[in-house]
């Protein structure tokens, strides 16, 4: 491995909710942890998320939803990734996501869900540990 190898992360907000305080803070924390963070802004369709992830050659996708649309959108993103033959991108989620929904989201391929109040270090460490470079 070369010394200049970097973890690249796509941070995205699928769906329509505009609450991006959390996602921007996480993006900043990942940058401060030495990662390259690509942020695409609000209102991303699952197709847009997947396209950006592939074009940018990211190792990890971080998704944030606070509106409750996660059960529809997270699995859709996983399906599209699978259809593209991608299995080596780590996908994590965050936002307001009820505990009861987490098992199904994990079954769909989301590796971890970070709820409100998760320390930034926990997210950073999780990605560093689990990402496939």
């Amino acid at each position: 491995m070369s010394s200049s190898k970097k973890i690249r992360v796509l941070v995205a907000k699928p769906g329509l909710d505009g609450h991006d305080r959390g996602v921007k803070i996480v993006a900043r924390a990942l940058r401060d942890a030495g990662m390259e963070v690509i942020y695409t802004g609000l209102r991303q369709t699952p197709e847009m998320v997947v396209r950006a992830a592939l074009d940018e050659g990211v190792h990890c996708i971080g998704l944030s939803i606070l509106s409750g649309a996660h059960n529809a959108l997270f699995p859709k993103i996983m399906e599209l990734l699978k259809a593209e033959g991608v299995s080596d991108i780590l996908v994590v989620g965050g936002g307001i996501i009820p505990e009861d929904d987490i098992p199904d989201l994990k079954k769909a391929g989301i590796s971890e869900i970070f709820g409100p109040g998760t320390p930034l270090d926990v997210i950073v460490e999780y990605i560093k540990t689990n990402v496939k470079l």
Binding site: R31, D32, E36, V37, I38, Y39, G41
Partner: peptide, 10 residues
């Protein structure tokens, strides 16, 4: 840190 925030795609 070597990190970067790349926001041009927005």
């Amino acid at each position: 840190t070597g990190g970067a925030l790349l926001g041009d795609r927005i």
